[in-house]
């Protein structure tokens, strides 16, 4: 474990809780893409199946349980508890357009042809593009509430920090995971446009408006 990865995980947990708190406190899923949350739930379920038989550390196990439960809780809040506030008209990104390519990529790039390794690769590729429905929704609605922007900033920062972690691990322990690194770079690039808007708009106290 290194500081970059720890900060990345903290940023990730922060993002998950910002979103849950926002939906729970405002009792509304307005502006939130339920489809992205479904994709994240699939990512965590596919990646953390090894939870039940490969113990790495208490931290690792606790975090996996947390991400799985938090993403399921978020999907439940959006599609069940606060279903009336879910903005389905603007959450229209076809998730099969990311599910199918991720699955194909998993069959091409994987570390072993075992079910769990295919699931792991699939989850890595899927996570890289899981935020697309949410970013798509922000461009369709033309804006995002501040709290949603903070959520996206924390979520984008998590994988950006992981890139620093991979650089660090490469030079200190020769660890290199090409699948995770490539997908992580793509994932972070997808946020760049948003990062720019966030820094130039939200941090100046203005609302995040995506220019129509």
């Amino acid at each position: 474990m290194n500081l970059f990865r720890l900060m990345g995980d903290v940023s990730h947990v922060l993002a998950v809780f910002i979103l849950l708190a926002k939906i729970w406190r405002t009792r509304s899923a307005a502006g939130i893409s339920g489809r992205s949350q479904i994709l994240f739930t699939i990512v965590y379920l596919a990646r953390y199946m090894d939870l039940f038989f490969s113990f790495i550390s208490l931290y690792n196990t606790v975090m996996k349980l947390l991400f799985i439960s938090a993403s399921c809780a978020t999907v439940y809040l959006i599609y069940f508890k606060f279903r009336a506030t879910y903005d389905g008209n603007h959450d229209t990104f076809r998730i099969e357009f990311v599910l199918v390519p991720s699955l194909l990529l998993a069959f091409i790039f994987h570390y072993s042809m075992s079910f769990f390794e295919l699931a792991w690769s699939f989850s890595i590729f899927l996570e890289a593009v899981a935020i697309l429905p949410q970013l798509f929704m922000v461009t369709k609605t033309g804006e995002a509430e501040n709290i949603t922007s903070h959520y996206l900033f924390a979520l984008g920062s998590y994988r950006a920090l992981y890139i620093l972690n991979w650089i660090y691990r490469y030079y200190t322990e020769g660890h290199f995971d090409p699948i995770a690194v490539c997908a992580g770079i793509v994932q972070t690039i997808l946020y760049c446009d948003f990062f720019y808007l966030y820094v130039t708009k939200v941090l100046q106290g203005r609302k995040l408006q995506v220019l129509p």
């Binding site: 990865r5 995980d9 990730h12 990646r47 090894d50 790495i56 690792n60 975090m63 996996k64 991400f67 790039f109 994987h110 570390y111 072993s112 075992s114 390794e117 792991w120 992981y162 972690n165 660890h175 290199f176 995971d177 090409p178 699948i179 995770a180």
Partner: peptide, 10 residues
């Protein structure tokens, strides 16, 4: 690809 099927990262 490199066969590091030991995933210690989240």
């Amino acid at each position: 690809l490199l066969r590091n099927t030991f995933h210690d990262e989240l």
